[in-house]
């Protein structure tokens, strides 16, 4: 038939090899090569030439100064901690908000499911910057959102704690809030994908064997959705930890996140080796736990 002829044609021409190789070539060209360039820069020495770094000749071939500062200077260390903690909090909130939403998506009728799934994806249709600016407006002193929250706060707390407005802008709170908002779909979609695959008769089996609905959730649904939780968690945590735009626009300049530090080192400080060193450390911090998880996941899959 047509399909068979087509695949035969692919095989004869070696096209299937090309198709398999394509993603690897892509990764090689646009990930591994740039990454090696960054690693190279990270061991160079800062100069006032253009490009502003050099190695060999008058300068040492390998200069680890950037790495030494990246792990010893408290400014960088604090920025790493701020980034990891903010990204961690954002991930936890995305999970707490996203899990019930993903679960609800699997329980509604098919027509409702499509509408709700579209609503989850809908924010991507507007510019990311526009949405961050919208939040800046909402969090500003005189916005209805801030005024409303201030009123509720003042009504609930003793008079001594009353405030004129909520100091939301330019804080790590603002960064986490906007990150949760931005990255929520990245948590919901993989969670939905893993929950949707679960067999509903397993829930019935657990109910039948004496478990109440909340026990069924803990015993049957939650353990089986761990791959989805990990996938969603990584999709939120990794970009959130390196986030640049959100902390720049709504964050606290006094305690910057690491993405902003890298950016500043590249642009205003023009210290490319330093910036590259931090970038490499950040990547190692992100990739090593993911690889460890991947290793155990592969082991678990292998035993199936």
């Amino acid at each position: 038939m047509g399909g068979k002829r087509l695949s035969g044609w692919f095989d004869r021409r070696g096209w299937s090899d090309v198709l398999i190789a394509a993603p690897y070539i892509w990764l090689l060209l646009f990930f591994l090569l740039p990454f090696l360039i960054v690693v190279g820069m990270s061991v160079a020495t800062k100069t006032s030439t253009a490009p502003p770094f050099s190695f060999g000749g008058d300068y040492p071939l390998i200069n680890l100064q950037g790495y030494v500062r990246a792990v010893s200077d408290t400014l960088y260390f604090r920025s790493f901690i701020t980034s990891l903690v903010s990204a961690g909090i954002a991930t936890v909130f995305c999970l707490l908000i996203g899990y019930p939403m993903a679960l609800a998506l699997t329980r509604v009728s098919k027509s409702w499911r499509n509408i709700l799934l579209m609503l989850v994806i809908l924010p991507f249709w507007t510019s990311f910057l526009l949405r961050v600016y919208a939040w800046m407006g909402l969090m500003g002193k005189s916005s209805w959102f801030n005024v409303g929250i201030t009123k509720i706060w003042n009504a609930l707390v003793p008079a001594g704690w009353a405030v004129d407005f909520m100091p939301m802008m330019h804080s790590n709170f603002a960064v986490v809030l906007v990150m949760v908002y931005t990255y929520l779909p990245f948590m919901i979609l993989p969670l939905y994908a893993s929950l949707e695959r679960l067999d509903p008769t397993l829930d019935e089996a657990a109910l039948d064997l004496g478990s109440r609905p909340w026990q069924v959730f803990l015993d049957v649904t939650l353990p089986q959705s761990i791959p989805g939780i990990v996938a969603g968690g990584m999709l939120v945590f990794i970009p959130a930890a390196g986030e640049l735009v959100i902390p720049t626009l709504v964050g606290d300049a006094a305690s910057p996140m690491i993405g902003r530090v890298i950016s500043d080192q590249f642009s205003s400080a023009r210290d490319w080796p330093m910036a590259s060193s931090i970038a490499v450390v950040l990547l190692v911090l992100m990739v090593v736990p993911a690889m460890i998880y991947g290793h155990f996941q592969a082991k678990a899959e292998g035993s199936k």
Binding site: D199, T201, L202, E204, A205, A206, D208, L209, D219, V220, P223, Q224
Partner: peptide, 13 residues
């Protein structure tokens, strides 16, 4: 009352 399901519905984990 307990049920033996047609698909067995064993907990895979």
């Amino acid at each position: 009352v307990h049920m033996m399901f047609q698909s067995y519905a064993l907990f895979p984990h």
